[in-house]
């Protein structure tokens, strides 16, 4: 992957939300640090998994990329252009290029609209179809690309007539109809039955192969990312703490948080029951981000330095694998 190929690039992205009461009389002196300096590149045709627990900022990141939240600081680059602060029109053009696949196909489809109408709606919003034939053609194409073949038999059906897997394909078709460069897939299979998850994951892999589409897969499920993603980014309290090729991160995680997270993912084989590193409590409140390394209060390998200094991403070994931990960048010599 060359230096110039990034479809999407985030530089030092921050998003603060005022904490506590809102209203004109409320004085806000505290902030939720939802995104606290995120740097990330999504290459063309790449599937990148963004993993982390709830509250780590993954959804805020997605909303910011969709333009639904304005970043407090930092920049977003799309195909080499700074798109952080844009006019309405520019924002709308960008929306066509970055489309979202929502989590719950039982909730995200309007039960009163036919499949054809649902998939055509983005075309209408963006006024992209010149006439009815073109509109119908593009909808059918999107449905078939999402694996709903032949498309015409689905056009007039209602969401309740479809299975969960088919519904999620409709959600994907509605994202594809604008022919975007990037799909943001937020937990695309977590609401589906186990026996049909693979078909949706395979569809995303196929779309990347066939259309060179880039996918940012937002998930808390590292096992699922392992099947699909080229690279994995692990997020903790608004920052990326580990990043690298999927295999490198999963086989030799460098950050103690990633190590713990991987150790508690249930493995479907009773002969492989392992020692689980169970972190006590839950991630701290993002209003009061701990000083030093943000993971240090829960870290089983905490050192003196971690309480004072905040580690940045540093190379683990020779490849592109990086982790923000003093054990990696400080040589691990302290105590």
């Amino acid at each position: 992957m060359s230096e110039t190929a990034a479809v999407l690039e985030l530089r030092n992205l921050r998003k603060l939300f005022p904490a506590g009461r809102s209203g004109i009389w409320a004085r806000t002196s505290e902030f939720v640090h939802a995104l606290d300096g995120v740097d990330l590149r999504l290459e063309k045709g790449e599937i990148l998994a963004l993993a982390g627990e709830s509250g780590c900022g993954k959804s805020t990141l997605a909303l910011t990329l969709m333009g639904l939240e304005k970043p407090t600081q930092g920049t977003i680059w799309f195909e080499g252009e700074d798109v952080t602060r844009q006019s309405r029109a520019g924002r709308q053009r960008l929306c066509r290029q970055i489309q979202m696949v929502f989590q719950d196909p039982y909730e995200s489809l309007n039960p009163l609209m036919t499949i054809g109408e649902i998939v055509a709606e983005p075309l209408d919003v963006h006024r992209l179809a010149q006439n009815r034939e073109e509109r119908r053609g593009r909808v059918e194409k999107a449905l078939e690309e999402a694996g709903l073949k032949p498309a015409h038999i689905f056009m007039n059906r209602l969401p309740h007539e479809l299975s969960g897997g088919q519904r999620q394909r409709v959600v994907i078709a509605a994202a594809l109809v604008l022919e975007p460069e990037v799909l943001l897939a937020d937990e695309p299979v977590s609401m589906l039955d186990v026996s049909i998850r693979a078909e949706i994951l395979n569809l995303l892999a196929e779309l990347r192969e066939r259309r060179g589409i880039s996918v940012l897969l937002i998930t808390h499920d590292l096992a699922t990312s392992a099947y699909l993603a080229d690279r994995v980014a692990v997020m903790y309290l608004g920052r990326i703490v580990e990043l690298g090729e999927t295999q490198a991160v999963l086989e030799s995680p460098a950050h103690p948080y990633t190590q713990a997270l991987l150790s508690v993912i249930p493995v479907p084989n009773p002969r492989k029951r392992r020692e689980r590193i169970i972190l006590q409590g839950q991630p701290p409140n993002p209003v009061h981000v701990p000083a030093g390394c943000r993971f240090h209060p829960r870290c089983p390998k905490v050192m003196e330095r971690c309480r004072v200094e905040d580690p940045v991403l540093a190379a683990v070994g020779a490849g592109s694998h990086q982790a923000a931990c003093w054990l990696v960048s400080g040589g691990g010599s302290d105590e």
Binding site: S163, G164, G165, D193, V194, S195, I196, R197, A198, E199, L201, N202, D221, L222, A223, T224, A226, Y227, T246, Q247, L250, L262, I265, V267, P268, N269, K272
Partner: peptide, 22 residues
């Protein structure tokens, strides 16, 4: 069903889906 469930200890195994639905 076991083959449809992602297994972190076997990342290279193929994940299958069972055609149809319950």
């Amino acid at each position: 069903l076991l083959k449809a469930f992602p297994d972190l200890s076997q990342p290279n195994a193929r994940l299958i889906s069972i055609p149809g639905y319950p």
